[in-house]
Design a protein around this nucleic acid. Sequence first.
DNA 1: CTCCGATGTAGACGATGTAGACATCGACCG
DNA 2: CGGTCGATGTCTACATCGTCTACATCGGAG
Lengths: 109, 109
Amino acid sequence: MAPGHFPGELEQMILLAVLRLRDEAFALPILRELDRKAQRSLSRGALYKTLDRMESKGWVAWTREATGPDRGGHPRRRFRVTPEGVEVLRTSREALERLWDGLDPVFRG
Amino acid sequence: MAPGHFPGELEQMILLAVLRLRDEAFALPILRELDRKAQRSLSRGALYKTLDRMESKGWVAWTREATGPDRGGHPRRRFRVTPEGVEVLRTSREALERLWDGLDPVFRG
DNA sequence: CTCCGATGTAGACGATGTAGACATCGACCG
DNA sequence: CGGTCGATGTCTACATCGTCTACATCGGAG
């Protein structure tokens, strides 16, 4: 998209969580990953909303997985990051990287 | 503040630009730094709005610098990041760091 | 006096972040 | 069979963030 288009703070983290989970990127696992790795807890509604918005921007895509192993219920959605999604993530990371670069180490923690 | 409180994408970059500029953190220099280091261009209005919001959250503070060296005009505002601001920046960076950690190098660029 | 450049401020609005209520569908338990 | 529970999804409403354009100020240059 537009070169100056950066993903939001939450979008970034969700994109990363989906990448990390590879073929296990379903809603609940994503929530758990965010909570464990980033101390970032949010509701399912918030997650789906963001995921849907990113889908319309072409950063993620998904497929319905017909009913899980044993548990019944709605077919769940398996998410994946598109090449465009990887690209905006990379762009964002590089920008942050350059801004942190050279900063007094006392700020890094 | 609240443990789950992360700075927005733009807030993060502005905080970093202010840190980088040390005692030269005035509006225009911040805009230039963002543009050069992060290819992130925005209007002055957008910058001030964000800076003001961060002030009310206690992440930045500023002082009026009585008229510059020679140029006349309004006294300009010199910004600085507060300890709280440094803290949220650090938290955010660490979260992102952990999410990127271990990801296939092909995603990093 | 007027125009200009460096600043700041105000107002409006679209985009992002977030929660909570509500709906489905099997499994399991009387 | 009816009720409850857990894993899922969907929808609505709202708060916060990101952004621009227009407007106001104040010296210096013409």
